[in-house]
Amino acid sequence: MMALAFLTQTLRIAIPYLFAAAGGVMTERVGIIGLTLEGYMLGGAFGAAVGSLATGNPWIGLAAGALGGLVFALLYGLGAIRFRADQVVVGIAVNLLAIGLTRVLLRFLYDSSSNSPRVPGFNVTSSGSGFGALAQNPLVWMGFLALPLVAWILYRTPLGLRIRAVGEHPAAAISLGVPVTRVRWTAVALSGILAGLGGAYLALDQHQFTDQMTALRGFIALAATIFGRWDPKRVALACLLFAAAETLQIHLQGVGAFPSQFVEMIPYVLTIVALAGVVGRAVPPAALGRAPE
């Protein structure tokens, strides 16, 4: 029973990571840095809350969540692709904008500086371990499918081949007639939708939107993307690993054995170690972060 509860909690924590990291793989494989996952998630969480509150239908909330992520992805694309601005700078600004805009709209729509009213989510009947409730949430299943979907696109479709070509060698892709700009836009838009769904899961699961509710999950997803070396299978494992570490920390909290701050560090330390190449170097897509010619 204990083991099932542990597993349930790990999966519950992992779902938003799986969504956002799927977006992370998508954007980084096309050569555009996934710094903005945090902003997409926040936009997605806010969109889901607004959509679900306005219609009372969580499915519409879900769609609005995807749209919320997409809006910030398009903005990032506008700066990084259309205007060829520095990805890091625009990316950071998009995150700041997501925080600011959701705050302003929270005040405008619900006259609150901290949280939205109660958001209708998917109806679930709870059981002992919570596993049954988890399994009834359609977003959970979508979360499990997000990275396999990205893997299928990347390795089994013409679009995926183009995405990988543009991410590794844009000049060669251009000379082969690949519409580089359109491929970049497509990948960035998909990334926004995927991470937006991760944010939507948070808002619908917690039944409200709260200021900065994503709480750095977008950066943990980015860490998982890098620690998983941009390979969907490994990235999924990285998400589960980070989620399991958090679950362990929650369980140990009562015992008071291990300070929570050290568990918080795990994804980030592992990412730095992976980049430094102590155990098998993480090599990013060759054109990552570079502006197209």
Partner: peptide, 14 residues
């Protein structure tokens, strides 16, 4: 709302 400033700062950067 004072949060408007967060938006303006982000817009300046972009």
């Amino acid at each position: 709302p004072k949060q408007m400033v967060d938006v303006l700062q982000a817009v300046v950067i972009i």
